[in-house]
Structures are given as C-alpha cells and as structure tokens.
C-alpha cells in the first residue's frame, strides 16, 4: 500500500510541470531573500558609507549632516581623523573595553554559580530563591534606576566606571534560566559518581562540570560582554554626560548627536565612531554565533 503510493509520488515528481513549478518557486524564494537582505543590510551599509563621506559644505568644512544622496561623492578617512582628534572617542573605547571585560567576568561567574546551584544542589531555601528571583525579575529594570543613582551618590560612586561594572554584574544572579536549563541536562549520575569518589562540591563544579560547559560559558560570556557595549541607559544615568572622559562609547556617541550641546555637523563623525565600535563586536558575535544560536534556541523551548 505504502509502496504504491511512493511510486505515484515519484512519478509526480518526475513530471516536467512539477519540476518547472519547483524551479519557479525556488527562483521566487531567492528573489525574496535578496530583497529582504537589501532591506536588512541597507541601514548598516548606509552608516559605513557615511563614515567615509568627506564631501565639503559651502564653508569648505566637512559636510557632516545627513544628506539625501546614497553614495558619497567624495570619500576618505577625514571623519575618522576628526573622531580621534576632536572627541574623547579613544578614551570612550578603552572605558567600554574595561567595563565590558570586567562585567563579563563577574556576570559569567555569578550566572553560572547561581544556575549550577539551582540546578544540581539541594538545600533548604532553593525553592524560596527561585520564587524570589522570578518575582524580582518581573519588575521593569529601570524602575530602580533612580534609586540606584541615589545609592551610588550616597556612597560617592557616581560618575565611576567601577559603579557601572557593579551595576552591570548585579543582575546576573536573576538571569540564570538559560544556564540552568543547560545544567539540568547534565546527567546527575556524573555528579553522584564524583561524590562517591570523595570529590567535594567545589571540586565537582570546577573540575568536572565547568570543563563540560563550554557552550554555556561562551553564550553567557558573549551576552555579558556585548551587553555593556550596547547599553546606554544605565551607563548614561550612572556616568552622567558632564565628564566626557568617563563615558562609554554608547553614551558618548549618543550624546554626540542627540545631547544637549549636540553639534549638527557631526553625523558623519558619529558614523565613523559606529563603524569602529561595530568591527570588534560584530566579529566577535559572528564568530561565536553558533553558541549564541544554541543558547537562544534552548531558551525558546524551555
């Protein structure tokens, strides 16, 4: 019965009209994908083109503003030169690198610790903590931003990168669900047999579980590292905008075009900054995208 039907299907597939229909479908799909790709990449390409745009205005300065023609009439590195000579961009870049690296280490440590404990260890207040973390996690993040500002101010910690690192890492103990999902799948027998061999809980975590957890370590660290590059709300409140030396790239660049004293002629300089910021982040992200996708997919079905 089944065999007969397969034959029928095969015949249908072999007929010319079916083949033609399939080819047309594929061509149509490719056209659609190309159109969508253009839509997706155009704004990114536009930023890069503007970064190299060095047309001059009536006064003979760099034009700097948003213009309507798509392709620059004159290209060069002048915008990058402006960026490095007239703004504190190099300093912002180093600040961000510092904040991102430190937050990444702290956050990853906290996230994995909490996730592992919640997944594999038994103790009296485990469920209480799960409940507490869930409820606290439902409050909108910047509800607390003003209070955080006052806490930091009371202890003289505003305008400091150190405070930003602490605040970035502080949420880690609540965002452990994806990592917990990962540890849940690690077989319990692994932990139990190590216990029988006399290993302490610390040894089990550091010597047995962590070496097995490369995907989740990379996923957690990737998010913790890229987060500070992208965040500008917390950074803006904590660092303020007055002291230009202590900003991160996100705050600095946003302030450059939309701040209180924003210059109108800095759009192309802004684009140059964005291009430089994007290169390390995008390279890192794309080279680690396998782990990112694994994490995201695991999170969606959990």
């Amino acid at each position: 019965m089944k065999g007969e039907l397969t034959v029928v299907q095969d015949q249908r597939e072999k007929t010319a009209s079916y083949k033609a229909q399939k080819t047309v479908g594929l061509i149509f799909s490719y056209i659609l994908l190309v159109i969508l790709s253009i839509v997706w990449l155009y704004p990114i390409l536009w930023i890069i083109l503007n970064a190299f745009r060095t047309e001059l205005n009536d006064q003979g300065d760099l034009i700097g503003v948003v213009v309507s023609n798509y392709f620059p009439k004159r290209v060069g590195f002048d915008n990058f030169k402006t960026l490095f000579t007239t703004t504190a961009f190099p300093r912002w870049f180093l600040n961000t690198l510092l904040v991102a690296s430190a937050s990444c280490v702290l956050s990853t440590l906290f996230t994995l610790s909490v996730a592992y404990v919640m997944s594999k260890l038994e103790f009296s207040w485990r469920k209480t903590y799960l409940r507490f973390a869930m409820i606290l996690g439902l409050f909108p993040g910047f509800m607390s931003i003003m209070a955080i500002y006052y806490i930091l101010k009371a202890f003289g910690l505003t305008h400091s990168l150190f405070a930003l690192i602490l605040v970035n890492a502080s949420g880690a103990g609540l965002g452990f669900y994806v990592a917990k999902g990962f540890f849940d799948v690690v077989p319990n027998s692994l932990v139990e047999s190590a216990r029988i061999d006399g290993a302490t809980n610390a040894q089990i975590f550091f010597k047995i579980i962590l070496p097995l957890s490369k995907p989740i370590i990379i996923y957690t660290a990737l998010l913790a590292f890229t987060g500070p590059w992208m965040d500008f709300i917390f950074a803006r409140v904590i660092l303020g905008v007055e002291n230009k030396e202590s900003l991160t790239v996100a705050v600095g660049l946003y302030d450059m075009i939309y701040g209180n004293h924003a210059d109108t002629n800095v759009f192309t300089t802004f684009c140059a900054g964005c291009t430089i910021v994007s290169i390390p982040i995008v390279t890192l992200f794309l080279s680690m995208q396998k782990y990112y996708i694994e994490g995201v997919t695991a999170g969606s079905v959990k």
Partner: peptide
C-alpha cells in the same frame, strides 16, 4: 548580595 544592593533595595 549584589541583588540585594542593586535590585531589591532600589525596587
């Protein structure tokens, strides 16, 4: 400790 200082207390 971090949650208490930077999330619970402000909230």
């Amino acid at each position: 400790l971090m949650i208490v200082i930077f999330t619970l207390l402000p909230t």
